[in-house]
Write a protein that binds this DNA or RNA. Sequence first.
DNA 1: ATGGCCTCGGTTCGAGGA
Length: 254
Amino acid sequence: MKLATWNVNSLKVRLPHVLQWLADNPVDVLCLQETKLTDDKFPVAELEAIGYQAAYTGQKTYNGVAILSRHPMADVVKNNPLFPDEQQRMVAATIEGIRVVCAYVPNGQSVGSEKYEYKLRWLAALRDWLRAEMVRQPNLAVLGDYNIAPADRDVHDPAAWVGSVLVSEAERAAFREVCGLDLIDAFRLFEQADKLFSWWDYRQMAFRRNMGLRIDHILLTPPLAARCIACVIDKAPRKWEQPSDHTPVIATLD
DNA sequence: ATGGCCTCGGTTCGAGGA
């Protein structure tokens, strides 16, 4: 069983990339963020043609999330019932006995801004909802763009980034609170090389210079962590023409 | 040097992302 997450930064622009990536990597589940599509524009037929069904919730211009699955999906929930929100940032479904949560955590813009406070509130509500959800379904995976680099080793230049949005202490504390529910960062279950990231700015030739952050994560409850035999970041699509600024993360379960 | 680049909406610039 392979579960993956990818912020595609517009599914309209990146549909060919997604189709190509799934042809190369026929994962069981792919969580997408920043689809930026209203539901009437979601490419259901194109995905069905390659064997994936979809649960999705989107809006014009911003945000939008989806779960693509080779297997049937049950109990689809759109957004956090504990956090009424115009912004479409979460979708969940039960697939092959696993509660899959796809999350697009707010960016936060800058420390102390209104959007930053919204990010922290959003994360607190996510934690509260996950706490209840884990009781109902101990096999739970939260995949997505967290917009948080959990530790300095997830940052290409910690000194340059210190205190700024995506790495600030309050954001890291919010991330640790989610992990404190007993959710484990699948990537850190394994020995990993240094300087592996999931996002690079489009500017400054950041990808070529590996000036990145690891902000896309797969969190697993202990029963799933025990089944996890690999977690990798696939840099390949970041080298393709007209890429997303994020690249996929994949967890393999026994 | 506090911007660089990309996407969107909707026009040729501003907002937002990270």
